[in-house]
Simulated assay, not measured.
Amino acid sequence: MEATLVRSSAPGEVTGFFGTRFTVDDVWEPTAGDVLAVPGGGDGLINNAQVLDGLKRAHQAGVTVAGVCTGVMVLSAAGLTSGRACTTHSHAKAELAAQGGKVIDARVVDEGDLVTAGGVTSGIDLALWLLTRASGPAVALGVESIMEYERRDTVRRSS
């Protein structure tokens, strides 16, 4: 498995919500990966037509799309959560439901090609679940052990 940080416009620096700076070397090609993860704090992406179109294109091409925390609201803006089981941060669940998502009270909800996670730390559970799907439970348990982390509950699967 390989992770790549990308930007929708051009390579460059990205400043995170709390001021952390990331250097991004690649431009996003929506259909290039197997899994596309949208982290929380992406409020500016909700109105970015290029990003929303790219998310739709990736999903239609068979890429598994994952969202963490309020990153799920970006997936909602792209129309990917409408009528589907999903979750997000507790403060955004009512809005997600109002936009047509079937909100489940869980840390991780797996709909096959759409996997969503609640608040920030639920992103760890999502990552471990995706690792389980890709490489099996033994590998994921090994990573949990190295991290000294224990998942708090089971993944809600609806597909």
Rank of each mutant, 00 (worst) to 15 (best):
V27W: 11
E95N: 14
D53N: 08
F17R: 15
V68D: 09
V115P: 01
T88M: 07
I146D: 06
A106P: 10
E13Y: 10
T70L: 10
V155E: 01
I146R: 07
L5S: 04
A37I: 15
E150S: 05
G62H: 06
S159H: 11
V120S: 03
V63C: 06
A106F: 02
T20P: 15
C86L: 07
V14T: 02
D26Y: 11
A138W: 04
R57Y: 15
V35A: 09
L80N: 00
G100K: 04
V6W: 03
V155T: 07
A37P: 00
V24I: 10
K56R: 02
V68T: 03
D113A: 10
L80R: 00
D26V: 09
S135P: 06
E2I: 11
S90E: 11
T132R: 11
A106H: 04
A85F: 15
G123L: 14
V35W: 12
L141T: 14
A3T: 12
E148F: 02
G119H: 04
G44N: 08
Q60M: 12
G118E: 11
T121W: 02
L55T: 06
V38R: 06
V65F: 02
L128S: 02
D34H: 08
G12I: 11
A32S: 14
D25V: 12
N48E: 13
L126R: 04
L128N: 07
E29K: 10
V120A: 00
F18N: 09
G119S: 07
V155F: 02
G19S: 06
V74D: 03
